[in-house]
């Protein structure tokens, strides 16, 4: 397995000058870091030339502190029985990547989600504007700097009598004149 993994890295390094091997893993996994421009060609090469026919997963990670997004493409070869993690970094200010749904059709769904949730633009992506969100005006909500608690506070409100830090029993008792039962009194603030 070790030899096979080294071969994979060597082949990718020979064909793609910017390919850098990532950390080593004891199980059937190989990591390769590339520049974002190389993504379509390296994925196409892996699929067509090396037998990595199955796109297992695409994920996006927001490294807010470093000002970058990391995109991870996990591909699998049923022959080698190895997972290759192809990783690339995008500038957070202007995240643009080439669309790859002509290589694997299901990538289209992932790209639609990342466009909506992280604000990453995929050049050449043909898909309806909206995926999960509807009439969304705010910043992409899966970014780390999007404060969900703050958003909920601004957008929603408490029903009268259910405001935060308010004892519901006391409110009901004040409103309807119901007496608070003895067992509940000890919990009242």
């Amino acid at each position: 397995m070790k030899e096979l993994k080294e071969n994979i890295i060597q082949r990718l390094k020979t064909n793609f000058a910017d390919a850098v091997a990532g950390s080593e893993f004891s199980y059937n996994r190989v990591d390769v870091h590339v520049k974002k421009e190389t993504i379509p060609s390296i994925l196409f090469y892996l699929k067509e030339e090396m037998g990595y026919v199955h796109l297992s997963h695409i994920s996006c990670v927001d490294w807010l502190e470093e000002g970058e997004f990391e995109l991870v493409f996990i591909v699998w070869s049923p022959v080698d029985k190895v997972k290759v993690f192809v990783k690339t970094r995008l500038d957070r200010e202007n995240p643009v990547l080439e669309n790859i749904d002509m290589i694997w059709r299901q990538a289209n769904t992932y790209e639609r989600e990342f466009r909506e949730m992280f604000g990453i633009q995929f050049t050449g992506l043909v898909a309806p504007d909206e995926f999960i969100l509807e009439d969304w005006q705010g910043p992409p909500p899966f970014r780390r700097d999007f404060d969900t608690a703050e958003y909920a506070k601004k957008t929603f409100w408490n029903r009268p009598g259910r405001e935060d830090a308010q004892d519901v029993r006391e409110t009901i008792s004040g409103r309807d004149g119901e007496e608070i039962p003895d067992f509940a009194k000890k919990y009242s603030r």
């Binding site: 297992s56 994920s59 990670v61 059709r105 299901q106 289209n108 769904t109």
Partner: peptide
């Protein structure tokens, strides 16, 4: 976690396919 991301079969089967 910095990120957790589920890969679901329905994600591939149930939308564009």
């Amino acid at each position: 976690p910095r990120r957790t991301h589920l890969r679901g079969a329905a994600y591939v089967h149930g939308v564009s396919l």
